[in-house]
């Protein structure tokens, strides 16, 4: 990854994350097809909701005929981490127009957020709407395409699991986390490791008592607060 913020570089930067979208997207398509959702329903979920783990939850709840309000509340809980990510990312686009901010926010995901933060570390704090929008739109289209491929192939092709594709998204976050740690020169490595330790142990403890979405959100906030404390001491 270099400091260039053009369309061309953005295409190059986003490629590794596409494996994650393809792996999870195909898996989602297979699940949605098994749940007898039509291709139109699957497409609308991909294009309007556009959120991996929420789409899995919505599909399960639709099959179970859950009340609409319950499905919407679950979706909000699962996606509430977006509020943290968007707030954190928005600071790099304060000088860009409101329309550009809304464009970026509309298609931001865990993956493009993490990629953007990696990029910030390389460019020393600069990001461009054109770089972010390019990455976002490519991710959006690839996600839709992968979900459709999964839905169409169904049981015909090999299980994406046997190909190891389902692990692509985990590998991607491991990579993005590591690159984030070594890329961010403004912060001591020790402080970052301490934040990782705080988040992991909070998640471990919270996991016993609350549902995964609330655990993830709380552990992240505890990690941020903990980071402020340990940095003061460091």
């Amino acid at each position: 990854m270099n400091a260039d913020l053009s369309v061309k570089t953005s295409v190059k930067d986003v490629i590794p994350t596409l494996f994650g979208y393809i792996g999870v997207g195909i898996a989602y398509g297979v699940v949605a097809q098994t749940a007898h959702l039509s291709l139109l329903t699957i497409s609308l979920l991909c294009l309007i909701v556009y959120a991996g783990s929420a789409q899995f939850a919505i599909t399960t709840m639709l099959v179970g005929s859950s009340p609409i309000s319950a499905i919407i509340l679950s979706t909000f809980l699962i996606n509430s981490r977006m509020i943290l990510m968007s707030t954190s990312m928005a600071q790099y686009f304060k000088r860009d127009s409101l329309v550009k901010n809304i464009q970026i926010g509309t298609l931001i995901t865990d993956e493009t957020f993490a990629l953007g933060m990696n990029k910030v570390a390389v460019t020393k704090g600069k990001l461009s709407p054109v770089w972010f929008n390019t990455a976002n739109v490519i991710a959006y289209l690839v996600w839709w395409f992968a979900c459709l491929v999964g839905a169409l192939s169904g049981k015909l092709v090999a299980d994406p699991k046997s190909l190891g594709l389902d692990f692509a998204v985990v590998a991607m976050f491991i990579g993005l986390l590591y690159l984030q740690m070594i890329g961010d020169r403004r912060r001591k490595l020790r402080v970052q490791l301490e934040v990782i330790l705080i988040v992991s142990s909070s998640l471990f403890i919270l996991g016993r008592f609350v549902n995964p979405e609330i655990a993830l959100l709380s552990a992240t906030i505890i990690g941020c607060l903990g980071g402020m404390v340990v940095e003061k001491w460091a």
Binding site: Q91, D110, F113, V170, Q192, V195, P212, G223, C224, M228
Partner: peptide
């Protein structure tokens, strides 16, 4: 506080897949 979000959230996403 927000400057810690990337590392914190990525850690949480990884751990959620390992446990």
């Amino acid at each position: 506080l927000l400057s810690f979000v990337p590392v914190a959230i990525m850690t949480a996403l990884v751990i959620q897949n390992i446990l």
